[in-house]
């Protein structure tokens, strides 16, 4: 029989829930509500007054073809960055799980990139990827003009995707490794006895058992790549060249915190929120069906 704690007085349960509700209300619902209100008005930054404009802010944003370009760009960024960081993290986690040389050190070191602040990380990558002075300058020595993130939008996009993925490889790695080590050894050993090689064991035994982790990381990484990329973009490219790396969240940050257009930024952040919610629902609706929970 299932064990259940019951309280005689109804308010005890409520009392336990109150701290959590207060926290969520103060730090999520209230600011989000404020953003909705701002997005329906034109706010003067110094608080001198605001004008109710209904959905004008949204109309202005959504009728701008350049805004739709940045939506497409953000989705591409999210998919590529998520794929890259999860793919590399999985490979690294499999290696460490197989106990290759140095795996004890790697297990500790791999999480560090996640702890590095975006601006510091972006500065380091900007330095490394500078076409005239960085590591990649050797590419240009062989093929002059091949790598030019200053004027070539595709190069600039590659640059920010690599920097962002590098940060999330560490995060994904920890989850993958934990999941891999949670798989009973007996399963792999049995498969090995049956003559399955390491790749076959990975594909047919380990990966199916990893699907809950893959799904979890997919949702988290996609959400984060919509929200957490502005620091890297700001330092590395400032959205350039010619808007090639202007992601939705960077535009929110720029218009709100540098341009002092609070209402426009609020409206954009609500569009972004709706997009993330929609994507998350889609993932739960269609991808979760393929997940095998034990």
């Amino acid at each position: 029989m299932e064990k259940r704690t019951t309280f005689r007085q109804w308010w005890i349960g409520v009392a336990f829930a109150v701290p959590q509700i207060v926290l969520i209300f103060t730090f999520f619902y209230w600011p989000a509500g404020q953003a909705v209100y701002w997005s329906l008005t034109l706010q003067q930054p110094w608080g001198g007054g605001n004008i109710w404009v209904g959905f004008d802010n949204f109309r202005q944003i959504l009728s701008d073809p350049l805004y739709w370009n940045s939506v497409v760009r953000s989705i591409v960024f999210a998919l590529v960055a998520t794929g890259l960081s999860m793919g590399i993290a999985l490979i690294l986690a499999v290696f460490v799980d197989r106990g290759l040389t140095g795996s004890r050190i790697h297990r500790v070191v791999m999480i560090w990139p996640y702890g590095i602040a975006a601006p510091a990380l972006a500065l380091a990558f900007r330095f490394m990827m500078a076409p005239e002075a960085g590591f990649l300058s050797s590419l240009n020595r062989l093929w002059p003009g091949l790598w030019d993130p200053g004027l070539d939008g595709v190069d600039a996009m590659i640059e920010v995707i690599v920097a962002f993925s590098w940060k999330y490889v560490g995060y994904d790695f920890v989850f993958f490794l934990a999941a891999l080590q949670g798989i009973p050894r007996a399963l792999s050993e049995a498969a090995a006895l049956d003559g399955a090689g390491w790749f076959r064991r990975l594909r047919d035994v380990q990966l199916p058992l990893l699907t809950p982790t893959v799904f979890f990381l997919l949702v988290i990484d996609i959400t984060e790549s919509f929200q957490d990329s502005f620091g890297i973009v700001d330092i590395m490219t400032a959205g350039g060249p010619a808007r090639a790396t202007e992601l939705m969240v960077y535009k929110v940050y720029f218009d709100g915190f540098k341009g002092f257009d609070y209402s426009g930024a609020a409206a954009q952040s609500i569009v972004l929120m709706i997009l993330i919610v929609a994507l998350t629902i889609l993932q739960f609706r269609f991808i979760e069906k393929r997940v095998h929970y034990r």
Partner: peptide, 9 residues
């Protein structure tokens, strides 16, 4: 020539 931090100099 274009010279900028993100290019190296």
């Amino acid at each position: 020539k274009i010279k900028a931090k993100e290019l190296g100099q």
